[in-house]
Design a binder for these strands. Structure first.
Length: 141
DNA sequence: GCCAACGTTGGC
DNA sequence: GCCAACGTTGGC
């Protein structure tokens, strides 16, 4: 099993959108970056994913979802038959009682090498090591 | 709203 | 293949 983080603007899709319908998968589409797309294509059913809220009042990790359908052709792309872009389906796992703020994440030594905390980083799908994952989960408690 | 950093596009 | 211009991301 692998670990990931995916960014979203909570106004568009937040951890609450998962939590209010915990058995209903959400199609994660619209990714238009090749590196992010390639990571999505590596995702396996059961992989765990941090939901990260960006461009909002409280930026940080809001909770956990799981991959429940592996990569398929993004239905929102111009020509879905081209299979240029990919989507995955995600399902609710956990909503943290409080968001782990970006400042807290930046202060975690385990995350020092993670692209998430590097200035200017725009990658919206980021792989996490188990070590990095566990450090964040601890910070959420 | 500002602006730095980045990825993509397109002319050459 | 180079690189300037442009559009977008995302923290603040």
């Amino acid at each position: 099993m692998a670990y990931w983080l995916m960014k979203t603007e909570p106004e568009e899709c937040s951890i609450d959108d998962f939590a209010k319908n915990p058995s209903k998968p959400i199609c994660w589409d619209g990714v238009r970056n090749y590196q992010a797309r390639n990571f999505m294509r590596e995702m396996k059913t059961g992989d765990l994913v941090f939901i990260y809220h960006s461009s909002c009042d409280l930026v940080g990790i809001a909770g956990v979802v799981a991959v429940c359908k592996e990569a398929y052709s993004d239905p929102t792309q111009e020509d879905p038959a081209s299979n240029r872009w990919s989507a995955v389906d995600l399902i609710f796992k956990e909503r943290f009682s409080r968001i782990i703020p970006l400042a807290t994440l930046k202060a975690l030594p385990e995350l020092a090498d993670n692209p998430l905390v590097r200035k200017g980083n725009r990658l919206s799908v980021i792989p996490f090591t188990e070590h990095e994952w566990n450090a964040c989960v601890l910070a959420a408690r």
